[in-house]
């Protein structure tokens, strides 16, 4: 469904334009109908990878294909929905006007009921006639979610979907992801919150310093985590992380971090 092959992305930084790798030689296949969690610390390159997948930035090397199309080709996005981190909308437009515009940009006919269903699923239907710049952060996030699921896309890419939400919002958002999972959608989401891993994911990929250090299905990674927990019995479970999987992922990131 999504094939990422030997992708490297570098940016030029500083006065002399020194090359700085954000993602290095990343290869990853995202399977259809499954939820893949993309974990890593801040600055690991998760958002850069996601932006390359959705065609916002171009890979310096390697290729990314979605349903056989290059990620920069608009046809790659025919069945794709994307929820960015900290979404925002232009001033002065109502929620319903915004979602109507995005619905029209899909190459298929979307009726009013579908738009209303998306708004209801995202829990923002009640504020559809309010101007989007008056929304709270959680409401904006919900509107962006409604925009991303409109047209019933097969692939959903969420960049830090739970960041900045209150506990109620997080719970509701997770429920929405569960609902989408039941509908056999391909979901790829990034997060640095390890507690999200077990609840939501079928597969876990871990990125640290732009390098993919783990890409396994949940069962395998849980086995590894259990073995690791057994080994490190005496030092265990700290206050912050209280399941073997969380501890394993945390230690994995810590070990591979450069500084």
């Amino acid at each position: 469904m999504i094939e990422i092959k030997n992708v490297t992305k570098y940016f030029r930084v500083g006065f002399f334009g020194t090359r700085k790798n954000a993602v290095e030689d990343l290869s990853l296949d995202i399977d259809g109908g499954k939820v893949t969690g993309f974990f890593g610390p801040n600055g690991a390159g998760k958002s850069t990878t996601i932006k390359m997948i959705v065609g916002l930035i171009k890979a310096s090397k390697g290729s990314i294909k979605i349903n056989g199309y290059d990620s920069f080709d608009y046809r790659a996005r025919l069945k794709l929905g994307y929820l960015p981190e900290n979404p925002s909308f232009p001033r002065g437009l109502k929620g319903i006007e915004i979602i109507n515009y995005y619905a029209k940009l899909l190459n298929k006919k979307i009726n009013k009921n579908e738009i209303y269903d998306a708004l209801k699923l995202a829990g923002i239907f009640y504020a559809k006639n309010t101007q989007a710049h008056k929304y709270s952060k959680g409401m904006t996030q919900r509107l962006a979610l409604a925009v991303s699921i409109i047209g019933d896309p097969e692939i959903l890419i969420f960049d830090e979907p739970l960041s900045g939400l209150d506990p109620i919002g997080r719970k509701e958002f997770k429920d929405i992801i569960f609902k989408l999972k039941e509908r056999k959608k391909t979901i790829f989401f990034s997060s640095h919150v390890l507690a999200d891993s077990k609840e939501l994911c079928d597969r876990i990929a871990v990125l640290v310093n732009g390098r993919l250090i783990k890409n396994e299905n949940l069962e395998n990674i849980e086995k590894e985590a259990a073995a690791y927990a057994e080994e490190k019995k005496e030092e265990r479970l700290s206050g912050e992380y209280n399941t073997p999987l969380e501890v394993y992922l945390y230690d994995l990131m810590l070990k591979n971090r450069k500084n």
Binding site: P87, F89, Y102
Partner: peptide
């Protein structure tokens, strides 16, 4: 806000 526009087809 461009993120949602140009990630459409």
């Amino acid at each position: 806000s461009i993120f949602l526009s140009i990630t459409r087809p």
